[in-house]
């Protein structure tokens, strides 16, 4: 075989590399920055001029006066946004059972009088460790605790949860969900206003 093909191969590789590896992603970056700057830069949220996170990236909430998100398996700390990771524990792995029991125990410690069954998403690890959402059921489960700590009535909290519940598109696409960060921000502004 001759050198001609080798020359062609190297040149075409170079050209297509420039086209798909620089021209394409840089043009998309330019267009996205032009048309959707907020989304393209991470859907960042601000409070008092400071960036407090992204709409889409869940945060660690552990104190009883906030709605908690799903357990996160990122290491070393939960909800470490730059280290996305699932638990990768098999359902038959005793470590998973142990982790679930710990999560259940902790929820019971925070609110010993709550005897409802715990929605499964509140005790199982999310895939990314950064899940921003919980199910509406998981939010409702936490209402008695927050009502007690913050002194807001159950009805008002139920109303807030309902207000922040995103429903499936067109009634069938996706799952009903509540963004925990948005919900907690609403909680804060309600507490302040009240």
């Amino acid at each position: 075989m001759d050198m001609k093909h080798i020359r062609t191969a190297s040149r075409l590789l170079l050209l297509l590399t420039l086209l798909t590896g620089l021209v394409y992603p840089l043009s998309i970056t330019g267009l996205a920055q032009l048309f959707f700057p907020w989304q393209a830069n991470g859907s960042l949220l601000k409070k008092d001029g400071k960036i407090i996170g992204s709409t889409w990236i869940g945060q660690s909430f552990t104190s009883p006066d906030f709605f908690h998100g799903r357990p996160s398996a990122t290491s070393p700390l939960p909800y470490d946004a730059k280290n996305s990771s699932g638990s990768n524990l098999a359902l038959t792995n005793p470590m998973l059972i142990h982790a679930l029991q710990t999560n259940i125990h902790n929820l019971h410690l925070l609110d010993p009088e709550n005897h409802q069954r715990i929605p499964i998403d509140l005790v199982t690890h999310s895939a990314s460790g950064l899940d921003p959402d919980i199910s509406p059921m998981a939010a409702l489960y936490q209402i008695p605790r927050i009502a007690k700590v913050r002194g807001i009535s159950n009805d008002v909290l139920t109303h807030i949860v309902d207000q922040y519940t995103m429903r499936p598109y067109a009634g069938f696409m996706g799952e009903p969900r509540v963004n925990v960060l948005a919900l907690n921000m609403a909680l804060l502004s309600h507490s302040k206003a009240g």
């Binding site: 638990s87 499964i120 690890h125 895939a127 990314s128 899940d131 959402d133 199910s135 799952e175």
Partner: peptide
């Protein structure tokens, strides 16, 4: 366990 099960949510994202 004291869980209300709605399918296997371990390692899954809620929005999906």
């Amino acid at each position: 366990m004291d869980i209300q099960q709605t399918g296997n949510m371990e390692g899954k994202e809620l929005r999906f």
